[in-house]
């Protein structure tokens, strides 16, 4: 893999190296640079607005404690994503230890206006359809096992490449593809079940 250092901007490199020596001020600059990205990632993974700030703060605390181990082989953004994803994984697993994970009946969602999706199938930009689709995918992701959810969010929502996801999850691209395929398959089954129930 091509080292990230070459294309790293000098300012960021200086901040990272200073943070590795324990300089908090320098780390604060990195927080300012990446906070939005971490917020988005955490929100998409956990889907709970009220928990995002606390989780993002914990991600940066973990990152500061681990930054000496960052070796510039991947981009700092990718390394930070790894910290964030692992932290959200733990959070999701803790949360998931209560309800059953997947393929549960969509009971209690009878007000889900799935017919809107069919009715508006041709008009992708329709705000009503957008909202329905978004809620539907949100529900499906919330029901998905943590492994599926993480890989789908990184690929389908964040738009990362298989290689980048591999770096974040420390998996070979082939293994990422397999996980993605299975996750998509399971989610599509759930999507179809939801529509048939309707």
């Amino acid at each position: 893999m091509e080292p990230y250092r070459a294309e790293l901007d000098a300012q960021e490199l200086a901040w990272i190296q200073a943070a590795q020596r324990g300089d908090r001020e320098a780390f604060g600059r990195l927080v300012e640079r990446y906070q939005q990205r971490v917020f988005a990632q955490v929100f998409r993974l956990v889907r709970r607005r009220e928990d995002v700030e606390d989780l993002a703060q914990e991600v940066f605390v973990k990152a500061f404690r681990a930054i000496r181990g960052y070796n510039f082989r991947s981009s700092f953004a990718t390394w930070l994503s790894r910290v964030a994803v692992n932290h959200c994984y733990d959070f999701l697993r803790r949360e998931r230890s209560r309800p059953p994970a997947y393929a549960v009946s969509a009971g209690g969602q009878s007000d889900q206006p799935l017919d809107v999706v069919d009715r508006l199938e041709s008009s992708e930009q329709d705000p009503e359809r957008q909202a329905v689709l978004r809620d539907l995918v949100g529900k499906l992701l919330a029901r998905a096992p943590a492994d599926d959810r993480v890989v789908l969010v990184l690929k389908e929502i964040e738009g990362l490449s298989v290689e980048e996801i591999g770096e974040i999850l420390e998996l070979k691209p082939g293994a990422v593809k397999v996980r993605l395929f299975r996750a998509r398959k399971r989610m599509l089954e759930d999507w179809r079940n939801l529509r048939q129930e309707k």
């Binding site: 001020e25 927080v31 300012e32 906070q35 939005q36 700030e53 605390v61 738009g159 999507w191």
Partner: peptide
């Protein structure tokens, strides 16, 4: 299409002073 709609959803922004609170 659902994933695309989901990706366009507004995400929460860090509130002012977030970095200082981390430090």
């Amino acid at each position: 299409g659902g994933f695309r709609a989901f990706a366009r959803e507004a995400v929460p922004e860090p509130s002012w002073g977030f970095a200082a609170r981390v430090l």
